[in-house]
Design a protein around this nucleic acid. Structure first.
Length: 881
RNA sequence: GGGUGUAUAGCUCAGUUGGUUAGAGCGCUGCGUUCACAUCGCAGAGGUCACAAGUUCGAGUCUUGUUACACCCACCA
C-alpha cells in the first residue's frame, strides 16, 4: 500500500542518486541511437541557483528526458564558467574582509587564491542543479579555465591573430575605474538622470571681447580640449574658422575647426573637442589629426596633464573647481538642467569613463556577416521567431569587440613581446621563443602580455570546446556537433548567442546548434523583476524544500513558452505541489481497486465505452504533448498533461469507474482494472520529463518493473484514433453536465438523490442512456431514470440534444425561479436563432461562405429551433400549474 | 531617435489558416463531501476582446492610425 502522501524531501535525493549511479545520465556515443545534444549555458562558478537558472535548466532537462524516452542518445553537456570579472570581484571581497587587496598578494598569488576559492566554494550550483533533477552527464563536467578549454582558447586566439581578425589598437574604450580594466559596450549600463549643461565662454585669440560659447555637460574635461568645432555652414562662426581660442585657466590656444560633428541646431553650435574623453570627439580628433590629451589616470582621477591644484581630484571635485574658476573669470554664461544618460559598469556600478588605452580587438566584420547569414538563410531555427529581428539588428551594426581585460583572473592573452616591442603570438611560450629566435637571430628575453580575455571569448567556444575540440578525432565532437538546441534567456543573445555563432562558424565552418529556444525572465507573482533592492527574490532551493523539485519545475514549465516571462511565487508552486498529491492519490485509488494489467490485455480491444474513451483521450494528449515539445511550446505541453491527469483521468475516468468497481460485473471490473493500470503507466511516462521524481517513485511503487522509468520508452499511441465508443462517453459527459447544472441552478442540494424523467429520446439515445445508467446515476446523483412520453407535471426541465430532461419536484417547485431560468435559456436560444436566420437569409453569406460553414449553421439552427420548441412547451406546462 | 513586444473575466494567461452563443487556472459566491485526494468535488456569477477607422457575407483574429505599458539598441554640446 502506498503511503498517505508523497514526501519529496525524502524521495527526491534518493531517486537522483539512483539515476546517477545507474549511469542513466551518461551519453552513449558508441550506440547507434540518433544523437541529441544540448550544451548547458554554463553557470558562473560563483553562482548559486536562482529562478532564472531553475527555469533554464528545467526546460533543458525536460527536453533531454523527453528525447531519451523517444530513443535518442542524449548528451547534456554540463560545465561552469570562470566568469572573469564576477569571480575576481567576489574573491577580492573575501580578501578585503581580512584587509588584503589583490595588489598585496601580487598576481600569481592572487590567481592561486582564486583557484583555491573555486575548489572550496565554487560549483555549489552543480549540487543544486542535481537537486532540481537535472540529468546532465556529470562525468563530463567542464570548466572554461580547465586545461582542454584553455588550450582551445589559445589555439583560437592565435589562429584569429594570424588571420588578422585579432589586432591591437589604441582606442577609446569603456574604462571601469574600480576594476581598472576595459569593458565591452555590452557591459555598460546607461542610466537616465537629470544633469546640468554649462555654457562657457572661450575667448578668441587676438580679438578683444570676442568669445565662442560652448555648451558642455562635463566641464572638467576641458583640460583635454584640443579644438572647438563648428559647422562650416554656420554663419555665426564661419569667419572664425582657422583662428584659435584660448582655453581659460591654463591659457592654452586651440584651433577652431570646421567639422560635420558640430550641429548648428544643438547647444550653441560650437562644440569643444576632447578626443581622449569622448567617443565622438575621438573621431573628430582622428579626422583633424588633433592631439589627444589624456587627463585621467586609471582611477579616473585627474593626472599630471592638468595644473597642480587639480591633480588627484576626482572628476566631480575637478568639475566644481573648474566651474568656480570659470565663474571667477566671468566666463560662465548660463546653466541649464539637461536630461541625459550616464554610463555605469554593470558589475561595479561606477561611472564608466571613455579612456584611451591599448587593447585587443576582434574584427567582427566577416565573422559577423557569416553569423548573420546563417540565421537569415534558416540554417539555425529561432524560437520564438521574432527574436531573429533583435539578432539581425545587432549583427548588422556590429562594432569591433574589445576582448582584453586588465584583470588577473582569466585566460591570459597568448602574446609575448620582444625587447623592441615585436609581437609573438603563439600557443605556448616555447613556440613564442622559437619564433623570437628566428626573428632576432638569437635568444632574447620575452615579456608576456598581462591582459586576460573577456569571459565571453571562452564561452563563445563552448559548443565545440566542451566536446573535445581541438581534438578533431573526438568521438563526442563527431557525434554531437553541431548540437541540437541552445536553450537560453534572451538577455544574453548578444553576449553569448551571437558570439557562439561567430566563433563556431569561424572555427568549425559549421553552425553551433540547429535550434535556439529563447525563454523569458522569471519574475515574482506580481510580475515585477526580482531584485535585491526590492527584496522580492524567490529562492528556488527554498521552494524545493517546501514543495519539492517536481512542483517547482512544473510551475515554471507551465508558463515557459513563446519567450514569455515567467511568474513565480508560493501560491503557484503550491498549486503544483497539490498536483503531485492529486497524482499520488490517483495511484492510491488505482491500487485500492486492484488496478493491474491483465496478461492478455490489449488496449485496442477494450469493450467498455469508458475504457475506450480514456484510451482515446490519452492518445490525443500524447499527440498534443509531443507536437508542443517538438516546437518548444513547453507551456502547451505542460498544460496538456496537467489537464489530462487532473481533468480527464481523475475527475472523470476515476469517478466513472466507481460504479463499475462497486457493481457486480466481473468482466467489466477486470477490463477496467487493466485499462486503469495501463493508462496510469503511460500517463506517468508522459509526465516524467516534467516531474521526474514523483513519476519515477510511482513507477517503482505501482508495478513490478525491472527498469527505471527514466530509461523506459515514450508510449506510442498512434493506433488509438477517436472511435464511436469513445464519443458515447463524451455525449454522456455533456448530458451529466446538463443535469448537474439544472440541479444546482434550481437549488437542489448536491447530496439529494433525485429521479430523472426523460422525454423525446430516440432509440439510439435510449440505448446509450441505458447502457450508461450506472455511470449517470453515480455522476449526477440520480436514483432512477425513467423514459416518459409526455411532460411530467411539477417538474423542472432542460433540453440536451433534443431530449427533454426533467426533475420532478412534486409541488416543491419554485415556479417563479423556474420561469426565470427557462426564460433565460430561451432568450439565449432565440438570440442565437435570430442571428443564424439573419445570416442564412443574407445572400452574400450564402453565396460566398464555404459550404461547410453554411451546413453547420443550418444544422445548428434546426437543433436550436427544436430545443426552443421543447423549452416553450415546458414553459407552457409550467404556466398551467 | 531606431527596434521588438504586449493590451481578452478581479488576477495570470489561452484563443491555430477570419466562421455557431469568446475559454482555462486562481480568486469570488453557492452547494456538497463516512473512504483516493479538505492538498477535494460540482455548479454559478463575472468580458461593449485598449480606442478609432478600414477590408470582408462575417473580425478577438487581417490592415492602418491612436493611446498606454514593457523590454532592447543607439545618441545626448
Amino acid at each position: 500500500m502506498l503511503e498517505k502522501t508523497f514526501n519529496p524531501q525524502d524521495a527526491e535525493p534518493k531517486i537522483a542518486k539512483k539515476w546517477e549511479e545507474l549511469g542513466l545520465f551518461a551519453a552513449q556515443p558508441q550506440s547507434n541511437k540518433p544523437p541529441f545534444c544540448i550544451v548547458i549555458p554554463p553557470p558562473n562558478v560563483t553562482g548559486v541557483l536562482h529562478m532564472g537558472h531553475a527555469l533554464n535548466y528545467s526546460m533543458q532537462d525536460l527536453l533531454c528526458r523527453y528525447k531519451r524516452l523517444k530513443g535518442f542518445d542524449v548528451l547534456w553537456q554540463p560545465g561552469l564558467d570562470h566568469a572573469g570579472i564576477a569571480t575576481q570581484i567576489v574573491v577580492e571581497r573575501v580578501l578585503a574582509k581580512d584587509g588584503i587587496s589583490r595588489h598585496d598578494l601580487g598576481r600569481e598569488k592572487f590567481v592561486e587564491r582564486v583557484w583555491q576559492w573555486k575548489e572550496e566554494s565554487g560549483g555549489q550550483i552543480v549540487k543544486q542543479l542535481k537537486a532540481l533533477g537535472a540529468s546532465a552527464d556529470w562525468s563530463r563536467e567542464r570548466f572554461t579555465m580547465d586545461e582542454g578549454l584553455s588550450k582551445a582558447v589559445r589555439k583560437v586566439f592565435v589562429k584569429m591573430y594570424k588571420d588578422g581578425l585579432i589586432y591591437k589598437d589604441k582606442r577609446l574604450v569603456n574604462w571601469d575605474s574600480k576594476l581598472q580594466t576595459a569593458v565591452s559596450d555590452l557591459e555598460v549600463i546607461q542610466k537616465e538622470t537629470v544633469g546640468k549643461m554649462w555654457y562657457m565662454n572661450y575667448p578668441v585669440e587676438g580679438m578683444a571681447d570676442t568669445f565662442i560659447t560652448v555648451a558642455t555637460t562635463r566641464p572638467e574635461t576641458f583640460f583635454g580640449d584640443t579644438a572647438v568645432a563648428v559647422s562650416a555652414e554656420d554663419e555665426r562662426y564661419k569667419h572664425l574658422i582657422g583662428k584659435n581660442v584660448v582655453l581659460p585657466i591654463i591659457n592654452r590656444p586651440i584651433p577652431i575647426i570646421a567639422d560635420e560633428h558640430a550641429d548648428p541646431e544643438k547647444g550653441t553650435g560650437a562644440v569643444k573637442i576632447t578626443p581622449a574623453h569622448d567617443f565622438n570627439d575621438f573621431e573628430v580628433g582622428k579626422r583633424h589629426n588633433l592631439e589627444m590629451i589624456n587627463i585621467l589616470d586609471v582611477h579616473a582621477k585627474l593626472n599630471e596633464n592638468v595644473p597642480v591644484d587639480f591633480q588627484g581630484l576626482t572628476t566631480m571635485e575637478a568639475r566644481a573647481l573648474v566651474l568656480k574658476k570659470i565663474e571667477e573669470l566671468g566666463l560662465l554664461v548660463k546653466i541649464e538642467d539637461n536630461p541625459m544618460t550616464i554610463p555605469y559598469g554593470d558589475r561595479t556600478g561606477v561611472v564608466i569613463e571613455p579612456y584611451l588605452t591599448d587593447q585587443w580587438f576582434v574584427d567582427t566584420t566577416e565573422i559577423g556577416r557569416q553569423a548573420l547569414e546563417a540565421v537569415e538563410q534558416g540554417k539555425v531555427n529561432v524560437y520564438p521567431e521574432n527574436m531573429k529581428n533583435t539578432y539581425y539588428e545587432w549583427m548588422r551594426n556590429l562594432q569591433p569587440w574589445c576582448i582584453s581585460r586588465q584583470l588577473w583572473w582569466g585566460h591570459q592573452v597568448p602574446v609575448w613581446y620582444g625587447p623592441d616591442g615585436e609581437i609573438f603570438c603563439e600557443e605556448t611560450e616555447e613556440l613564442a621563443k622559437q619564433e623570437a629566435k628566428k626573428h632576432y637571430g638569437k635568444e632574447v628575453s620575452l615579456r608576456r602580455d598581462t591582459d586576460v580575455l573577456d569571459t565571453w571569448f571562452s564561452s563563445g567556444l563552448w559548443a565545440f570546446s566542451t566536446l573535445g575540440w581541438p581534438d578533431a578525432e573526438s568521438i563526442y565532437l563527431k557525434k554531437y556537433y553541431p548540437t541540437s538546441v541552445l536553450v537560453t534567456a534572451f538577455d544574453i543573445i548578444f553576449f553569448w548567442v551571437a558570439r557562439m555563432m561567430m566563433m563556431s562558424l569561424y572555427n568549425m565552418k559549421e553552425i553551433p546548434f540547429k535550434d535556439i529556444c529563447f525563454h523569458g525572465l522569471v519574475r515574482d507573482e506580481k510580475g515585477q523583476k526580482m531584485s535585491k533592492s526590492k527584496n522580492n527574490g524567490i529562492d528556488p532551493l527554498e521552494m524545493i524544500r517546501k514543495y519539492g523539485a517536481d512542483a517547482l519545475r512544473m510551475s515554471l514549465l507551465v508558463q515557459a513558452g513563446s519567450g514569455r516571462d515567467v511568474l513565480i511565487g508560493d501560491s503557484r508552486v503550491e498549486a503544483y505541489r497539490n498536483f503531485t498529491t492529486k497524482i499520488w492519490n490517483a495511484a492510491r485509488f488505482a491500487e485500492m481497486n486492484g488496478a493491474t494489467v491483465a496478461k492478455d490485455f490489449d488496449p485496442a480491444k477494450v469493450k467498455l465505452p469508458l475504457n475506450a474513451w480514456v484510451i482515446t483521450k490519452l492518445s490525443e494528449a500524447e499527440k498534443t504533448i509531443s507536437k508542443a515539445i517538438d516546437t518548444y511550446s513547453i507551456n502547451e505541453a505542460s498544460q496538456s498533461i496537467y489537464h489530462f491527469i487532473w481533468g480527464t483521468f481523475c475527475d472523470w475516468y476515476l469517478e466513472m469507474s466507481k460504479p463499475i468497481f462497486y457493481g457486480d460485473n466481473e468482466a467489466a471490473k477486470i477490463e477496467t482494472r487493466s485499462t486503469m493500470a495501463y493508462i496510469f503507466e503511460k500517463m506517468i511516462t508522459l509526465l516524467h520529463p516534467f516531474m521526474p521524481f514523483i513519476t519515477e517513485e510511482l513507477w517503482a511503487d505501482t508495478g513490478k518493473r525491472d527498469n527505471m522509468l527514466m530509461a523506459s520508452i515514450w508510449p506510442d499511441l498512434a493506433a488509438f484514433e477517436d472511435n464511436e465508443a469513445s464519443s458515447k462517453i463524451d455525449w454522456a459527459i455533456e448530458l451529466i453536465g446538463s443535469v448537474r447544472s439544472l440541479r444546482a441552478e434550481m437549488g437542489i442540494s448536491a447530496s439529494a438523490k433525485i429521479s430523472l424523467k426523460i422525454q423525446d429520446a430516440d432509440e439510439k439515445q435510449k440505448q446509450l442512456i441505458q447502457s450508461l445508467t450506472d455511470v449517470i446515476h453515480f455522476m449526477a446523483k440520480i436514483e432512477s431514470i425513467e423514459f416518459v412520453n409526455e411532460h411530467v407535471k411539477g417538474s423542472v426541465s432542460t433540453v440536451y440534444d433534443g431530449i427533454i430532461i426533467m426533475i420532478p419536484l412534486d409541488g416543491l417547485i419554485d415556479v417563479a425561479k423556474e420561469k426565470e431560468r427557462l426564460n433565460k435559456e430561451m432568450d439565449n436560444l432565440k438570440g442565437f436563432i435570430e442571428r443564424s436566420k439573419a445570416q442564412l437569409a443574407n445572400e452574400a453569406f450564402v453565396s460566398k461562405a464555404p459550404e461547410k460553414v453554411i451546413n453547420e449553421r443550418k444544422k445548428a439552427l434546426t437543433e436550436a429551433g427544436e430545443n426552443l420548441t421543447k423549452l416553450q412547451e415546458a414553459y407552457k406546462r409550467l404556466a398551467d400549474l
